[in-house]
Amino acid sequence: MSLMTRGLEPAVAAVCVVPLVLLAYKAYSGDLGVNPIETLTHETGGTALKLLVASLAVTPVRRLTGWNRLVSTRRLLGIFAFFYAVLHFSIYLVFDQFFDVMAIVDDVLKRKFILSGMVAFLAMLPLALTSTNGWIRRLGRRWQTLHRLAYLAGAAAAIHFVWKTKVPEVEPYAYAGVVAVLLLTRVWFSWKKRQTQTA
């Protein structure tokens, strides 16, 4: 095992921690801007989406490049994506709604923007809980089926971002496009697999 390969996971973990460290430093130095809660909401949500996209990119990139070692980073990226999503949701829960469960239920039912974010978050929850080696062993083949929920999480998170803006903006649509491509590669791979099986 080369040094570079051995350092892959710690390097990815280090990159995943950077946004948190930056936010903590900005919070400490009072540099979160005029509306700090909004800044925290946007930064944690944006980081969760980025890492979710990265985790969805692992398999297509591995297949295209043949760099199989990459698969070991997928769980890490997914768990960090969930970690930032937890922060993002917690800010909403505490500072926007102050634990008002009825108001949250009302918000989710009435507003597709909130609903899409909640779907993304809830889709990630069982994935994070079953991400241990023990659960992978216990669930066997069903683990893989369950973890296809990541596709739903990615799509819902991208749509959540698109529905957030008041006028159409480039960035949310760029993320939605990337997620769409990453999901289409799954369709394509499974189609190719079926082709080779029937041939």
Binding site: V34, N35, I37, E38, F95, D96, F98, A103, D106, D107, R111, K112, F113, I114, W163, K164
Partner: peptide, 16 residues
């Protein structure tokens, strides 16, 4: 349609 108008965050305050 996308968010509630029942509350607001006064800039500089933590809670709405």
């Amino acid at each position: 349609p996308r968010w509630s108008q029942a509350t607001e965050r006064v800039i500089g305050q933590l809670f709405k």
